[in-house]
């Protein structure tokens, strides 16, 4: 099961730039880019920090693909 995310959409909705979000959670902009492109799976701690920074429930922003390959 792959981990997917809505980080980019959520970030844009909350008017954060990649740079600003990276600064809030203490990572590089490259890490935000990699997470948005789903090339890097963040730790639970970083995922929680991102959800907290964007004031969004973590389950809405990150989810595991179900057996049909869809968002549950």
């Amino acid at each position: 099961m792959n981990l997917h995310n809505d980080l980019k959409e959520t970030r844009l909705k909350k008017n954060f730039t990649q740079e600003a979000l990276a600064g809030v959670v203490g990572v590089t902009r490259q890490t935000i880019i990699a997470i948005e492109k789903e090339k890097f799976v963040p730790s639970v701690k970083l995922a929680l920090e991102l959800a907290s920074a964007l004031d969004t429930p973590i389950g809405k922003m990150f989810w595991l693909e179900n057996s049909q390959g869809e968002k549950p």
Binding site: G26, A34, P42
Partner: peptide
């Protein structure tokens, strides 16, 4: 992380 002073540059988890 300027708050860490002389060790202000850190690797994040991807790095």
């Amino acid at each position: 992380h300027p708050e860490f002073g002389i060790t202000a540059l850190r690797r994040d988890e991807r790095a």
